[in-house]
Structures are given as structure tokens and as C-alpha cells.
């Protein structure tokens, strides 16, 4: 059943902008992205919005809906009350380009800073063999759709622009964890780099990244905290450090 939905949509650019009121028809079963498209088609022809798959798999339509980082294509209009006004803004951790579109290139720069997978030198293409139980932890992290909602909600950069230089963010901590847990990755000092170059120590594990992840990746419990513990192994645990000098220990490189 159709209803008239009250919305406030942020419109503007890097210099200026404001929330604009709009009333739009919303039909049963529609998501917020649907009604944004209707606004674009009927009332705001130049409204900028980034989207692609409309299935929660491309990560393009990330925005903030009633103040929460969400995918617009996965947010049911019916989840809000009949009289409730839905407020839609661009991601507030990144520079705005226009209306609901932000510049997320920060994330691509950070991605390039992460040392890539390094297999053993004598491993030829097609020869990699791994057991399922050795890779299943990493597989959870491969579900990431790079919507960057975790990056947006992380207060380390959301509330402190100056930290962007030294902090990779939760999306890239799961990348680091994925590689550090990879059974065939042999790169040394990945843990030290995570702490010293990618800012793992800046995270105070308040779990907002996990709360907003549309893929339900347990970012904090399964990636960030395990990485913090691995960092403790090599940097803050003299007993384990001594143990590695006496006897080769798995995982401590």
C-alpha cells in the first residue's frame, strides 16, 4: 500500500549544503534507494546518488539514514514508523562531492599500503594447496563488499581527520588479518606493520564497525582482536619472544 513518506535529503557540495524537505510516494516493499530514485525522477532531477546492484552486494549506495551508516538498497522503508521522517545524508567521514556522493578514495590509498599476499618463492602457479580448516577463517573476511560503512562509522577517522594519515581502518584490518592467517603467506613482520604503520593500536575496539557491517563480518572479534593479540605476541610478550628464540614457534613471524 502506497504512503506519503516525509524525507529530509542533504543537498550540497564541499562548500555548502543543507537538508531539504521532500514528500514522496513510497510503495509496499520498497527500500530507501527506491524512494530516493523516485525523488530524483520526479522532484530533484540533479540529485547525485551513487548506486549499482540494488542487491546489497556492490557496496555503492552507502549513506547515512537517520544518522546510521547503512546501504540504502538494504534499508526497508517499512522499518520506519508511518509518521517518521527519514533523514538521508552522505557518509560523514569522507569529503563530500555532491549531495549523497562522497569521495572514498582514502580507502583505495590505504588498500595500496597493505603489503600483498606473498607465497613461498618455490610455489609455482597451480601448485598452492590448502586445507579447508586453514582457510575458513579468512573466507569470512572475503565477504567484504567494500561499502566502507565500517570506515565511515569508525570514530578514529570519523571524529579525527588528522588520524587518516596513520590509520588504515577496520576494512583493512580484516585484509591484514586475512593475510596474516593465510596458511601460505610468508611475509614477515605483518603484525609489526599492522601496529606501527597501519595504526592497529589506535583502535579501541568499540565495535561500531561490526555493528554496521551489512555482511555481518565479525570484524572486531575475528579480525581486529586476533590481530591485537598477535601484535602482543611479537611486541609486548617477552615470554613468547624468548620462546621464539629457543624454539621456532608457528605464527610468530
Amino acid at each position: 500500500m502506497a504512503r506519503n513518506l516525509k524525507m529530509r535529503i542533504w543537498r550540497g557540495d564541499a562548500d555548502n549544503g543543507a537538508l531539504q524537505d521532500v514528500t514522496v510516494e513510497a510503495n509496499e516493499g520498497e527500500v530507501v534507494l527506491d524512494v530516493i530514485h523516485r525523488v530524483q525522477a520526479t522532484q530533484m532531477g540533479d540529485l547525485a546518488v551513487r548506486w549499482n546492484c540494488k542487491a546489497g552486494k556492490c557496496g555503492s549506495c552507502s549513506m547515512e539514514i537517520n544518522g546510521k551508516p547503512r546501504l540504502a538498497c538494504m534499508t526497508q522503508v517499512a522499518s520506519y514508523g508511518d509518521e517518521e521522517t527519514i533523514t538521508v545524508t552522505p557518509l560523514r567521514a569522507f569529503p563530500v562531492i555532491k549531495d549523497l556522493v562522497t569521495d572514498v578514495s582514502f580507502n583505495y590509498r590505504k588498500a595500496m599500503e597493505i603489503p600483498s599476499y606473498e607465497p613461498p618463492a618455490n610455489l609455482k602457479p597451480g601448485e598452492a594447496r590448502m586445507e579447508q580448516i586453514d582457510v575458513e577463517r579468512s573466507q569470512e573476511f572475503r565477504k567484504c563488499i567494500e561499502c566502507f560503512l565500517c570506515q565511515d562509522t569508525c570514530h578514529v577517522i570519523r571524529d579525527h581527520e588528522e588520524n587518516k594519515k596513520s590509520f588504515a581502518g577496520p576494512r583493512f584490518f580484516i585484509r591484514i588479518a586475512e593475510l596474516d592467517m593465510h596458511p601460505l603467506d610468508i611475509l614477515k613482520n605483518r603484525k609489526q606493520k599492522a601496529q606501527e604503520e597501519h595504526g592497529l593500536g589506535m583502535c579501541n575496539i568499540t565495535k561500531c564497525c561490526t555493528e554496521v557491517c551489512p555482511e555481518h563480518i565479525r570484524i572486531t572479534d575475528n579480525a581486529i582482536i586476533p590481530m591485537k593479540e598477535r601484535v602482543v605476541d611479537v611486541k609486548y610478550d617477552p615470554v613468547r619472544w624468548l620462546g621464539t628464540k629457543i624454539r621456532k614457534r608457528e605464527g610468530i613471524v
Binding site: G17, E64, G67, K68, R92, V96, R158, D159, E162
Partner: peptide, 17 residues
């Protein structure tokens, strides 16, 4: 700084939740 940084969307509220 933070959500009130010059390049970010100009929104005066600390949160819209």
C-alpha cells in the same frame, strides 16, 4: 575536526540518530 571538517557535508548536528 571530525564530522565538522571543512571537506565534509555541512551538517551542524553531532548526530542525526
Amino acid at each position: 575536526s571530525g564530522v565538522f571538517s571543512p571537506t565534509r557535508a555541512k551538517i551542524k548536528e553531532r548526530t542525526l540518530r
